[in-house]
Computed example of a mutant assay.
Amino acid sequence: MAPRLLPFGSDPVRPAPPTPVTITVDGETTTGVTGQSLAGVILGSGTLGFRRTSANNAPRGVFCGIGVCFDCLVEVNGQRDVRACQRRASSGDVVVTQHDDLPGGEGE
């Protein structure tokens, strides 16, 4: 199932109008709304992989979505190992996907 944002006018909860949030992910600008996690904004842009595994360079994204696993780790504003599912997006955030080689360079 593709990520999507429920249209404001169709939401039965009738929240306040959404306020846009703009972040940069690997040099590309993407937008979301106030209250969304970084993972939500990134997924909404169509990006599924946030980092790559050390051993096989396999893409990883949101797995649990509640901060238990480490599959959505990204660098945010220079701080590494941030769980994208646990951090609310703020306008101006600079997100960089992560990849760490295995010790001794075995992950290349």
Rank of each mutant, 00 (worst) to 15 (best):
M1N: 09
P3S: 15
P3L: 14
P3F: 15
R4W: 14
R4L: 12
L6W: 10
G9I: 14
G9W: 14
P12Q: 13
R14S: 12
R14D: 11
P15K: 06
T19L: 05
T22R: 14
T22M: 04
I23Y: 00
T24I: 04
V25W: 00
D26I: 06
D26G: 02
D26C: 05
T29N: 06
T29F: 02
T29Y: 02
T30G: 02
T31Q: 15
G32H: 02
V33L: 08
T34D: 07
G35D: 05
Q36S: 03
L38N: 01
A39C: 09
G40I: 08
V41Y: 01
V41M: 04
I42W: 00
S45P: 09
S45V: 10
S45C: 09
G46F: 14
G46M: 08
T47N: 07
T47W: 00
L48M: 11
R51D: 07
T53N: 04
T53F: 07
A55G: 03
A55M: 13
N56D: 13
N56L: 15
N56R: 15
N57A: 13
P59D: 04
R60E: 08
R60A: 02
R60T: 05
G61N: 13
V62I: 15
V62F: 14
F63G: 09
C64E: 11
C64Q: 12
C64F: 13
C64P: 07
C64H: 10
G65T: 09
G65M: 12
V68E: 15
C69G: 11
C69Q: 12
C69K: 12
D71V: 14
C72Q: 08
L73E: 09
E75Y: 02
N77E: 03
N77G: 00
N77I: 00
N77W: 00
N77R: 01
Q79H: 10
R80L: 14
D81T: 10
D81V: 10
V82Q: 14
R83S: 10
A84M: 06
A84Q: 05
C85T: 06
C85G: 06
C85V: 11
Q86H: 07
R88C: 06
R88H: 10
R88D: 08
A89L: 03
S91M: 06
G92W: 04
D93N: 02
D93V: 01
V95Y: 00
V96T: 09
V96H: 02
T97Y: 00
T97W: 01
T97V: 00
T97P: 03
H99A: 02
P103S: 11
P103Q: 06
P103T: 08
G104T: 07
G104P: 11
G105K: 13
E106C: 12
G107I: 09
G107H: 10
E108G: 08
E108L: 14
